[in-house]
Amino acid sequence: MPEKKEKTTRRDFLYTASFTVGAVGLGATIWPFIDQMNPDKSVQALATTEVDISNIEPGKSITVLWRGKPVFLKRRTQDEIAEARAVSLEELKDPQKDEDRVKDGKDEWLVMLGVCTHLGCVPLADKGDYKGWFCPCHGSHYDVSGRIRKGPAPVNMEIPKYEFVDNNTIKIG
């Protein structure tokens, strides 16, 4: 270390300035190489799917593919809805009312991503300890509202953004 504090010179200024410009330039150059891995325009363009639900009987469900992931559309019976609503929130790992997982006045329709929130497998319908879904990969049990009840999954199955275009059509995305 020098005995006295050295005076800041033109050289110090040039050194700091060029280092800063270099760092910013390097960062700006690296970014495109990172961002190119994010979903591209063609992938994003497939962001909505319309589904005809007129043929689904109560108690039945269909699975459609949306953005590469399965979406479960289940038309629930009155018994199933009653069962889902009878559960007290304290029993739930990720507390959420069944009413908040469906659209107002469309209580029988449960639309959710058929993807286990643990590590992304597709759960099997009408299986498990809670008569909802069961994930064969690591043993997560979901109830008839798609809420996690038992197993390693941290949260309930996700409800995607969707709307009823008319009484027979659902638009997902």
């Binding site: 990172i34 891995m37 994010n38 979903p39 591209d40 992938v43 953005r67 590469g68 992931k69 993807v115 992304g120």
Partner: peptide
């Protein structure tokens, strides 16, 4: 995960990279 996939699930971009 989306960045790793290059899509919203494991798909063609994932296989490619």
């Amino acid at each position: 995960t989306t960045w790793l996939w290059g899509a919203y699930s494991v798909d063609n971009p994932t296989l490619n990279r």
